[in-house]
């Protein structure tokens, strides 16, 4: 019997398969696309035999968690990220920052349990969506933003918090001949500042800080975020899968 964690986010769908000893057997991610149900079909197509659907326990999470009809349980991404962070970073009390496609959250975690959390409000500033929209505007893939920003020559500030207004601000900056590198910096700086506002609400902001979610491979962003919140923010390549990892671990713990 194996254990499946599926995290269908607004942008990416992440899947992790574990055995009963919590060893990772398989993991992958797919773009969610227009529908969680469609994403689920593609996940099923890609799963190898290690996850025979008739023979697994599955926990689903993320905003599309309800779409996973065969899930034995749905658990929110907040709880799953805490669990995933414990799997990746250990038992020590920590703060986890997750920059997701439509939600950014900060979570205080101890031994895999959520102690406190805050999320962004209805607005998309400071989320992955913000980064995606802005990268589009600059005509580069989202992943290139990090490289571009690293080579900036000026600490450019984007003052609009709203995604729509920030986009027009970028258009006018580009119109004035501002370099892509400086604008890319402005975009990441804006995200990091928005995250800091959320982070500063935590009762104990003096703990080891870990980043999960889609931006955890962006090393320059990580440095920028560390400078802005005044703590070294650490991460691991697998941290992109924290939600799905947590879901798989919870599947083992609940059904194993």
């Amino acid at each position: 019997m194996n254990y499946l964690g599926i995290d269908i986010g607004s942008t990416c769908a992440k899947t992790v398969v574990m055995d009963s000893d919590k060893h990772i057997l398989e993991y992958f991610f797919l773009p969610t696309g227009w529908s969680s149900f469609d994403a689920l079909d593609r996940i099923k197509g890609q799963l190898s035999e290690s996850a025979d659907l008739d023979n697994v326990f599955c926990v689903s999470t993320g905003y599309g968690r309800e779409a996973v009809s065969f899930a034995n349980k749905t658990i929110t991404e907040i709880t799953c990220h805490a669990k995933g962070a414990q799997y990746l970073f250990g038992d020590t009390p920590m703060n986890v920052i997750d920059i997701g496609g439509q939600d950014t959250k900060v979570i205080s975690v101890s031994k895999g349990r959520v102690e406190e959390f805050f999320m962004n409000d209805k607005c998309s500033a400071g989320t992955g969506k913000f980064v995606e929209v802005m990268a589009n505007r600059l005509g580069v893939p989202t992943n290139d933003l990090n490289r571009l920003a690293e080579n900036h020559t000026e600490d450019l500030k984007i003052s609009s918090m709203c995604t729509v207004f920030a986009e027009s601000e970028i258009i006018s900056l580009a119109g004035k001949g501002e370099s892509r590198e400086n604008i890319a910096y402005g975009i990441l700086d804006s995200v990091a500042n928005k995250v800091r506002t959320l982070y500063s609400r935590l009762s104990d902001d003096d703990r080891p800080v870990y980043l999960t979610g889609g931006l955890c491979e962006a090393d320059y962003f990580l440095k920028l975020l560390s400078d802005i919140i005044g703590h070294e923010v650490k991460t691991l390549p697998l941290a992109r899968y924290a939600g799905a990892l947590g879901a798989a671990v919870l599947s083992v713990e609940k059904f194993g």
């Binding site: 991404e77 939600d103 959520v114």
Partner: peptide, 14 residues
Amino acid sequence: VGQLNTRIAAFIEM
């Protein structure tokens, strides 16, 4: 409603 559900469900999971 979706956002409220996620926040409140996570709160109850605590």
